[in-house]
C-alpha cells in the first residue's frame, strides 16, 4: 500500500532522510519513533507529497507520488506536526473548507462534517472560533480534517505532543477507533505512547531507519539476555543441567512449590536455540514447564539504539 523506495531528502548539503526503504501493507498501524530532529516529519512530508524526494520514490497503491499527486493525495489524510488550522474560522467552516478541497461532493459535505464532528467529539465546539479552543481540541479538529473524506491512509505527525495526559488518552482512543482497514502511520518521540498505538515500530535515527519490526519482536528481541525457566525436578540436577548446557549461566533459582523451580539464566551468546538446554534438563530427569524470555521495554531498546554510535 505504501512503498518507500530508497528515499533521501537533502536540505542543502544536509541529509535529513537517508536512503529509507520500507513497505507498509493495508491495515497496518505503524509507529515512527525517533528523537527530535531524527527526520520523522521530513519523512512524513515526503510520504504525503508535501515535499518532493531528493532521491527515490514514494509509491502509494502502485502509483508514483511524483506522477499522480492528486489521485494519491485524495486517499491520504494528514495531520502535520502543528495542526494546520485557520485560527479565525469556526470549526464547522474550517471542516467545510477542508471537505471541499478534498473533493467531497457538495451534497455530502454537511454529512461528512457532522460525521467527523461526532467521531472527534467536537459537538460542543462546532460553532466556536478555532483560536479559542484548547490545544487538545485544536488537535482533534486537526484529526477531523485528516479523516473527513475517509482516506485509506492516515498519517499523524506527533498527534499527542504538548497535550496533557487526559487529552493524550482521548487522542489515543480516537486513533484506536479509526477503522481497522485503514493504514495508519503515527510518529512520536514519546516511547510509552507508541507501545499503546502501533503494532509495528520503525525506529528512526539521523534520517535512517535503524529498526523496523513488530512491537512484539522488539519487546522480546534476541538481545534480551535473561530467560526464565519453570522446571520440575531435583534442584541440584537442574543446576547441573544448566551448567552443562551450552551458552547459559544460572543467575538465580527460586522454589515455586515442592520440586518446581523458577530458574533465571543468562543467555550468554544471544542464542535463540534452547534445544541443548532442554536436552540437558531432560537428561537430568527434569520436566520443563515453561520457558520465558524477559520482556524488555521499548524504552530500553530505544535508549540502546540511540546510545550506539552517538
Amino acid at each position: 500500500m505504501i512503498l518507500a523506495d530508497n528515499i533521501t531528502k537533502y536540505f542543502g548539503a544536509f541529509k535529513a532522510v537517508d536512503s529509507v526503504s520500507f513497505e507498509i501493507g493495508r491495515g497496518e498501524i505503524v509507529g515512527f519513533l525517533g528523537r527530535n530532529g531524527a527526520g520523522k516529519t521530513t519523512l512524513m512530508r515526503m510520504l504525503t507529497g508535501y515535499l518532493p524526494t531528493s532521491e527515490g520514490k514514494v509509491i502509494i497503491d502502485g502509483k508514483d507520488m511524483s506522477k499522480n499527486p492528486l489521485s494519491i493525495k485524495r486517499n491520504i489524510g494528514y495531520l502535520p506536526e502543528n495542526p494546520p488550522l485557520y485560527s479565525n474560522m469556526t470549526v464547522k467552516d474550517y471542516l467545510k473548507f477542508a471537505a471541499r478541497l478534498k473533493d467531497i461532493t457538495p451534497k455530502q459535505i454537511l454529512a461528512c462534517v457532522d460525521r467527523v464532528i461526532e467521531e472527534c467529539r467536537l459537538e460542543d465546539s462546532r460553532g466556536k472560533i478555532i483560536s479559542t479552543l484548547s490545544k487538545g481540541y485544536k488537535q482533534r479538529v486537526g484529526i477531523a480534517q485528516a479523516i473527513i473524506n475517509e482516506p485509506e491512509i492516515i498519517i499523524l505527525d506527533e498527534p499527542t505532543s504538548g497535550l496533557d495526559p487526559v487529552q493524550i488518552s482521548h487522542i489515543r482512543d480516537l486513533i484506536g477507533t479509526l477503522e481497522h482497514k485503514r493504514t495508519v502511520i503515527v510518529s512520536t518521540h514519546i516511547l510509552s505512547e507508541i507501545e499503546q498505538i502501533a503494532k509495528r515500530v520503525m525506529i528512526i535515527k539521523d534520517g535512517r531507519i535503524v529498526k523496523d519490526d513488530s512491537l512484539e519482536n522488539i519487546l522480546c528481541s534476541d538481545n534480551r539476555k535473561d530467560i526464565f525457566i519453570k522446571v520440575a525436578g531435583k534442584e541440584e540436577l537442574i543446576e547441573k543441567a544448566i551448567r552443562q548446557a551450552d551458552g547459559f549461566k544460572q543467575i538465580n533459582i527460586d522454589i515455586v512449590q515442592d520440586d518446581v523451580y523458577l530458574v533465571q539464566a543468562e543467555n550468554k551468546n544471544n542464542i535463540l536455540n534452547y534445544n541443548d538446554l532442554l536436552q540437558k534438563l531432560v537428561d537430568n530427569g527434569a520436566k520443563v514447564l515453561e520457558i520465558k524470555q524477559k520482556k524488555g521495554s521499548l524504552e530500553e531498546e530505544f535508549l540502546r539504539i540511540n546510545r550506539l554510535k552517538l
Partner: peptide, 13 residues
C-alpha cells in the same frame, strides 16, 4: 501557521 502544508497535501494543484 502551517496551513500551507494542509493546502498542499489536499488534492489541489
Amino acid at each position: 501557521t502551517g496551513t500551507m502544508e494542509f493546502l498542499m497535501t489536499t488534492p489541489t494543484t
